[in-house]
Amino acid sequence: NKFNKELQWATWEILNLPNLNEEQVKAFIDSLKDDPSQSANLLAEAKKLNDAQA
């Protein structure tokens, strides 16, 4: 289903952001699991944090 694909993509993207630490990655992944419908928003937040920590 649509959410599953978005969830998988967002998870992969977050796991490959170079500037997030392990705790941050885990928090984002946990949030994705809690509410897959928010995957696009969570991914945007993760990318923002990644850029801020570059």
Rank of each mutant, 00 (worst) to 15 (best):
N1F: 01
N1V: 04
N1P: 14
K2Y: 07
K2M: 14
K2F: 10
K2N: 15
K2V: 14
K2A: 15
K2L: 11
K2R: 09
K2H: 15
K2I: 15
K2T: 06
K2P: 11
F3D: 14
F3A: 14
F3K: 09
F3H: 14
F3V: 14
F3P: 15
N4L: 12
N4E: 15
N4V: 06
N4R: 04
N4W: 15
N4P: 07
N4T: 10
N4G: 12
K5S: 09
K5I: 05
K5R: 04
K5G: 08
K5Y: 06
K5E: 15
K5A: 10
K5L: 03
K5F: 04
K5W: 07
E6V: 11
E6Y: 14
E6M: 12
E6N: 05
E6A: 07
E6K: 04
L7T: 06
L7D: 04
L7Y: 07
L7N: 03
L7F: 07
Q8N: 04
Q8M: 13
Q8G: 04
Q8H: 04
Q8T: 07
Q8D: 04
W9R: 10
W9G: 03
W9E: 11
A10K: 03
A10H: 05
A10F: 15
A10Q: 03
T11H: 03
T11S: 06
T11E: 04
T11G: 02
T11I: 14
T11F: 10
W12D: 05
W12R: 05
W12N: 05
W12H: 05
W12Q: 06
W12S: 06
E13N: 08
E13I: 14
E13Q: 15
E13V: 15
E13D: 03
E13P: 01
E13L: 12
E13G: 05
E13H: 11
I14R: 00
I14M: 04
I14K: 01
I14W: 01
I14Y: 02
L15P: 02
L15S: 08
L15Q: 12
L15E: 12
L15F: 08
L15H: 08
N16T: 09
N16A: 10
N16K: 13
N16M: 12
N16Q: 10
N16Y: 04
N16W: 04
N16I: 05
N16G: 07
N16S: 12
L17A: 01
L17M: 14
P18E: 08
P18H: 09
P18T: 10
P18I: 10
P18R: 13
P18Y: 10
P18Q: 08
N19W: 13
N19S: 07
N19M: 06
N19P: 00
L20N: 00
N21F: 10
N21G: 08
N21M: 11
N21Y: 11
N21T: 11
E22W: 12
E22T: 11
E22A: 13
E22D: 13
E22R: 10
E23W: 15
E23T: 08
E23F: 14
E23P: 06
E23G: 09
Q24Y: 02
Q24N: 02
Q24L: 03
Q24W: 02
Q24F: 02
Q24H: 03
Q24G: 01
V25Y: 05
V25W: 03
V25G: 02
V25E: 02
V25M: 13
V25H: 05
V25L: 07
V25D: 00
K26H: 10
K26L: 10
K26W: 13
K26Y: 11
K26V: 07
K26A: 11
K26P: 00
K26G: 05
A27R: 13
A27M: 13
A27P: 02
A27V: 10
A27Y: 15
A27W: 15
A27S: 08
A27H: 12
A27L: 12
F28H: 01
F28W: 03
F28Y: 06
F28A: 02
F28G: 00
I29L: 11
I29M: 09
I29N: 02
I29V: 10
I29G: 01
I29F: 05
D30G: 15
D30K: 14
D30L: 15
D30I: 14
D30Y: 14
S31G: 09
S31N: 08
S31L: 12
S31T: 11
S31P: 01
S31V: 07
S31R: 15
S31H: 10
L32W: 02
L32A: 04
L32Y: 02
L32E: 00
L32Q: 01
K33V: 10
K33R: 10
K33M: 14
K33N: 15
K33F: 15
D34F: 11
D34W: 12
D34S: 13
D35A: 07
D35G: 03
D35N: 09
D35K: 07
D35Q: 09
D35H: 08
D35V: 05
D35L: 05
P36Q: 03
P36H: 03
P36D: 02
P36I: 12
P36K: 03
P36T: 04
S37F: 07
S37N: 07
S37G: 09
S37A: 12
S37V: 05
S37W: 07
S37R: 08
Q38T: 05
Q38L: 06
Q38N: 11
Q38P: 01
Q38Y: 04
S39A: 14
S39K: 06
S39F: 15
S39W: 15
S39H: 14
A40Y: 14
A40H: 08
A40P: 06
A40I: 09
N41R: 13
N41M: 14
N41I: 12
N41H: 12
L42T: 10
L42W: 07
L42G: 01
L42Q: 03
L42D: 00
L42I: 13
L42K: 06
L43Q: 02
L43N: 01
L43A: 06
L43H: 03
L43W: 05
L43K: 02
L43D: 00
L43Y: 08
A44Y: 14
A44K: 12
A44P: 02
A44D: 07
A44W: 14
E45P: 00
E45H: 09
E45S: 11
E45L: 14
E45R: 15
A46I: 02
A46R: 00
A46S: 02
A46F: 02
A46V: 02
A46G: 02
A46H: 00
A46Y: 03
K47G: 04
K47A: 05
K47T: 07
K47H: 08
K47F: 11
K48S: 10
K48I: 10
K48E: 08
K48H: 08
K48A: 08
L49W: 04
L49E: 03
L49G: 01
L49P: 00
N50P: 00
N50W: 01
N50G: 02
N50Y: 01
N50V: 01
D51V: 10
D51L: 13
D51W: 13
D51S: 09
D51Q: 13
D51I: 08
D51P: 01
D51G: 07
D51M: 13
A52S: 11
A52M: 12
A52K: 10
A52W: 09
A52F: 10
A52V: 10
A52Y: 11
A52P: 02
A52R: 13
A52H: 10
A52G: 06
Q53I: 07
Q53A: 06
A54M: 10
A54T: 10
A54E: 09
A54K: 06
A54V: 08
A54P: 06
A54N: 07
